[in-house]
Amino acid sequence: MNARRRLLAALLALLALPRRVLAQPSVNPAPGIDARTLSTPQGTLQAILKGTEMRRGRVRLELPAIGENGHSVPMTVRVDSPMSEADYVRRIDLVSEKNPVALMATFFLGPHMSRAEVESRVRLNGTQRVTALAQLSDGSFWFDAAEIVVNESACLDGG
């Protein structure tokens, strides 16, 4: 009787938990939501690296030397990888030095991609250094950084 009552109380307590606690998403739904850890470029890199070292090389980040308009800057990131089942790029993170939210995007790749290459257009809040950090399937981290002069910043009226 007592055990049943305790079980009932436990079940009721579970129901009372906010739904958010029970349904934690498996991936960060939007980069930048946890502003405490993701607001600085260093914090962002540390959160991804989790103590692992990053080495320069294997990654190539291409940005124009001068971005006339920070609202839309062409960006290409390439990693030197065979993209086979045994050796592929797992993820590429783009980290900005001056944007209000440092983590701009994370790309998740895999052995079904024939090239470790992604092209997009980014927003940049001023002249700065952008870092592309890649994690390979063996867990190692590699990066490249590019300096860009931005003449007209994005997010002028906010940040």
Partner: peptide
């Protein structure tokens, strides 16, 4: 891709 406000309006991706 997990994207934030650092990706430009009318997002473009090539892979």
């Amino acid at each position: 891709a997990s994207m934030g406000a650092g990706i430009a309006a009318n997002p473009y991706l090539k892979f």
